[in-house]
């Protein structure tokens, strides 16, 4: 039982969040909501990265005076480093894409995808 719960929380959880984002991309017509969907996907991926680095009974990979030496007491530092990079990149992309949404709104006076496509094709 415990194992199954862990699968749910560690793999299906983040993947589900990722796919909520995909669902948003599949159904939403509003540019801003699409950006939000991308952000949700980001969140899912970041959680997934962290989840994969997790280990039972291990602590943050920081050497302190109190802890004993062996490295097996620490969780893997690599996913934590990667997730930082991933977060920063997603922040950058989000900033840019939000600016783009503003410009789109200025140009087409709407955020609706279908309407913009209509104007664009004319």
């Amino acid at each position: 039982m415990g194992e199954i719960i862990n699968y749910w929380t560690f793999i299906y959880g983040p993947l589900a969040i990722f796919l909520v984002g995909v669902y948003g991309l599949l159904t939403q017509k509003n540019l801003f909501k699409l950006v939000i969907s991308i952000n949700i996907m980001d969140l899912g991926v970041n959680l997934y990265i962290i989840a994969l680095g997790y280990m039972d009974n291990a602590s943050a990979p920081i050497y302190t005076a109190k802890l004993a030496v062996t490295s097996s007491r620490f969780v893997d530092p690599v996913p934590q480093a990667l997730v930082l990079t991933s977060i920063v990149i997603s922040v950058a992309v989000t900033a840019f894409v939000l600016a783009l949404v503003i410009k789109n709104y200025e140009k087409y006076n709407t955020l609706d995808l279908i309407k913009i496509k209509g104007i664009e094709n004319d």
Binding site: L26, L113, N121
Partner: peptide
């Protein structure tokens, strides 16, 4: 000539 949703459908 699809909208963004259409492309995501295609990918999925």
């Amino acid at each position: 000539e699809e909208s963004i949703n259409g492309y995501i459908w295609l990918i999925s």
